[in-house]
């Protein structure tokens, strides 16, 4: 996608907020759908400058959130544009790449809907349905987490508490060793 939607920064801030929450032990979210979902960062981070046409930095493989390059990018004020995430809800797990600017889902892997060996094999139609449902459930779960972010982002506490905490978290990365 080449055009950047209005308020694209909101999705990028959401990604950074998720990263902060995952590193501060607050990455389990109780959404308005009732269940608790956990979010973790996987093996891809893409950073960019304020201007979308400027150079991007992509970190792949291993645990890029722990890399010196990721810390340096954050401290240089680069925005987290894209990240590969793992979302877990009970025993179910989805992995996907989330584009902050568009909230488009890339390379999604859904929980296997084929069922346990003990259960009767699903019909082809049931299998198709379960696969579609896997994508839709991921989107709805992430919507729930995004809603929690919006609650915080649009509250008075954002400027007063959240931004200083995020800035402190970024600043404290200076002292960390890999």
């Amino acid at each position: 996608m080449t055009t950047t939607p209005e308020h694209a920064f909101l999705g990028e801030e959401f990604l950074t907020w998720l990263w902060y929450r995952s590193e501060s032990g607050q990455a389990t979210f109780t959404t308005d759908q009732g269940g608790a979902v956990a979010v973790a960062f996987d093996d891809l981070l893409v950073f960019g400058g304020e201007d979308e046409n400027r150079m991007q930095q992509t970190l792949r493989r291993g645990l890029p959130t722990l890399s010196l390059e990721a810390k340096a990018a954050l401290q240089a004020g680069k925005r987290l544009r894209k990240a590969r995430l793992v979302l877990a809800d009970g025993p179910e797990q989805w992995s996907f790449t989330l584009d902050g600017a568009t909230l488009a889902f890339g390379s999604v892997r859904c929980p296997d809907p084929d069922g346990d060996d003990d259960e009767a094999a699903p019909t082809p139609a049931e299998l198709d349905c379960a696969r579609m449902d896997g994508f839709a459930r991921l989107a709805r779960r992430l919507d729930g987490v995004y809603r929690l972010f919006l609650d915080e982002r649009l509250s008075d506490d954002w400027e007063r508490a959240s931004v200083p905490s995020l800035r402190r978290w970024i600043d404290e990365k200076r002292g960390e060793r890999v």
Partner: peptide
């Protein structure tokens, strides 16, 4: 999009106003 999803998230009036000025 992030903005469109926010508008559909069932936020209150006050928060929607903030959203526009964000």
């Amino acid at each position: 999009t992030p903005l469109e999803l926010a508008f559909r998230a069932g936020l209150g009036k006050e928060r929607l106003k903030r959203l526009e000025r964000l």
